[in-house]
Design a binder for these strands. Structure first.
Lengths: 216, 216
DNA sequence: AAAGAAAATGAACATCGTTCAATATCTACA
DNA sequence: TGTAGATATTGAACGATGTTCATTTTCTTT
C-alpha cells in the first residue's frame, strides 16, 4: 500500500531516523498536553499553551495532529491504558466476587485522582467525535475495559451468583452505578445534597452498592 | 435595602409596567435560548444567535444577564421544574417500592428525551459556576429532586425493605446508577460496548437494577 | 555547493464571550 | 406640549480561541 522511492542505500537509514524523530515530537506534544491538563484543566489548555510548553510554533502542532480532537483522543487512549493497568493488578484476586468489589474501588479511585482524564474518557464529546471521523473505527478502549468487568461478572455467575440476571445488562448496570458516582462527584453534583464530605459519601454509596450485589 | 425615589403618585404605575416589561424580555431571551438549545444543541448556541432570534442586539442580552453562565443557570432551573413535574405525577402511586421503580423510569425518560437539558442539569460546569458566584447559595434544585427520591426510599424502609442499608447513601447509590445509565447514553459511551441498540440496553440495564433493589 | 525535499513558522481568519462609550427612547414635570 | 434627565438599546471593539497556509528555514542528496 505504501510506496517509498528509495534513491540510495543510505536513504533508508535517515528515513527511519526521521520517522523516529517525528514520533518523538508527537509524543512530546502529547506529554506537554497531559502536563498542562493536570496543571490547569482541559478547558484552560489551548493549542498555543501546548506549543509554548514544547517551544515550537502553533503550526507545528497541526503538522502532527489534524486538530485538537485528535490530541484529546490520543490522551483518552493513554487514560485507558493507565486505568487498564490499575485494573490488571486485580487479576491476581481469585474470588470473582471479591475481584468485582475491588474493581469498582479501583475505578472510583482512578476517577477521583484523575478527574480531568476521567471526563475525557467517559464524558467529553471530543475523543468520540474524532473516532467518528475515522471510518469503521470502534471504541476499542471502552470495549476492553468493559470486557474486564463483564468477564468478572461472568465468573461470578459461574459460581452461582446473580441468578436470573443477564450478563451484559447486569455488567452495564454495575458500570453505570460506579460511573454515576464518579460523574456526580466530578461534576460537583454531590455538594449540597448531603451533609458529609463528598468523598466520604462516595465510599458509603459504594458500600451500599456492594451490599446490593452481595445479596444477588 | 433598596431605595426607590418616588417623584409622583403615578410613578409607581409605570415602574411596575417597566418591571414587567423587563421580566418579559428576560423570559423572551430564555425562551429563545431554550429553543436554540433544542434545535442545535447547547454548544452550537451563541449569545449572538440568541440575540438574533429575538431581534435584539448582543449588548441587550448582557443588560438582562450578567454572563452566559447565568442564562445556563436559569435554564438549568427550568429543567428541574420540568423534571419535578414529571416526578410529581408519581405521588399518586401508593406503594413506595412501586413508586421507586417508576421514579427511575421517569428520570431516564427525561434524560433520553432532553439530553441537552439533562447535561445542563447534571454535568455542565456552567450553572454550578454561576451558583458559586452567588453568596451562600446552595443547589436547591438538586436538593429538592434528591429529596423526592430519599423520601420514597425512606418509605420503603419503613415498610421493611433495605434492612441494613443507610437511607442517605442508598438513595445516592440508586441515583448514581440511574444517572450513570443516562450519562453513558447521552455521552455515547454505550456504542460499541454492546450489540443491541443503546435504548434497549438502557431498559434492560434498568430492569437489572430493579431486580437488585427488589431483593433488598 | 546547490537543488530539491521536508519541517517549522507565525501572521491572518473566523468565531466566541464580553465590554462600554455612544445613541436612541421614554418619562416626569414645568 | 416641550425639554431635561433617566432608562434602554446598540454595535463596534477587545482579547482569546481553533485553524489554515503561504512563506521561510532546515536538512538531505548528489
Amino acid at each position: 500500500m505504501f510506496i517509498f522511492f528509495v534513491t540510495s542505500i543510505q536513504t533508508m537509514g535517515t528515513a527511519e531516523r526521521k520517522a523516529k524523530e517525528k514520533e518523538e515530537l508527537k509524543n512530546l506534544i502529547l506529554q506537554a498536553a497531559r502536563k498542562l491538563f493536570a496543571e490547569n484543566g482541559i478547558e484552560q489548555t489551548t493549542i498555543r499553551n501546548i506549543a509554548q510548553e514544547i517551544e515550537y510554533s502553533v503550526g507545528t502542532v497541526y503538522v502532527y495532529f489534524k486538530d485538537k480532537n485528535e490530541i484529546l483522543h490520543h490522551l483518552h487512549i493513554q487514560g485507558f491504558k493507565q486505568l487498564g493497568g490499575d485494573m490488571r493488578v486485580l487479576a491476581s484476586v481469585d474470588d470473582p466476587m471479591e475481584r468485582l468489589r475491588a474493581l469498582g474501588r479501583v475505578y472510583l479511585r482512578f476517577a477521583i485522582e484523575n478527574p480531568d482524564m476521567y471526563e475525557l474518557m467517559f464524558s467529553m464529546k471530543a475523543p468520540m467525535e474524532f473516532l467518528e471521523t475515522l471510518h469503521n473505527q470502534e471504541w476499542n478502549e471502552g470495549k476492553a475495559t468493559f470486557d474486564f468487568l463483564r468477564t468478572t461478572v461472568n465468573q461470578c455467575m459461574e459460581k452461582g451468583h446473580f441468578k436470573g440476571h443477564e450478563l451484559e445488562a447486569l455488567s452495564f448496570t454495575i458500570w453505570s452505578a460506579t460511573h454515576g458516582m464518579a460523574s456526580l462527584h466530578i461534576n460537583q453534583r454531590i455538594k449540597g445534597v448531603n451533609l458529609c464530605g463528598p468523598e466520604t459519601m462516595l465510599d458509603r454509596a459504594y458500600d451500599e452498592l456492594v451490599m446490593l450485589i452481595n445479596r444477588a
